[in-house]
């Protein structure tokens, strides 16, 4: 049984808050609802960015998600463009 959009949002936020490392790949959120398609999870995670609850943590080559409060420094990893 797939989660509702609000339930999925809550599950993603919980994961972002409690995961051992602050930066998460989109794939790390797939487990929040094994029944949802990856693109649905991606869309909900991106909605959370629009709402200001998550931030993109982009290195140039790779983009991850994070809770703003868990990111210490604006410098981070970067990569090939």
């Amino acid at each position: 049984m797939a989660l509702s959009k609000d339930e999925l949002k809550a599950a993603i936020l919980k994961k972002a808050e409690t995961a051992p490392k602050p930066q998460l790949y989109i794939k790390d959120f797939y487990a929040c609802d094994p029944d949802a398609k990856p693109r649905e999870i991606k869309n909900v995670a991106n909605d959370l960015v629009k709402e200001g609850k998550l931030m993109f943590w982009s290195s140039g080559s790779t983009t991850m998600y994070a809770m703003k409060s868990r990111i210490k420094d604006e410098e981070g990893t970067s990569g090939v463009n």
Binding site: K21, Q23, K72, D73, E75, G76, T77
Partner: peptide
């Protein structure tokens, strides 16, 4: 420690 996720 500050700038790097070791597993990555």
């Amino acid at each position: 420690t500050g700038v790097c996720e070791l597993p990555l």
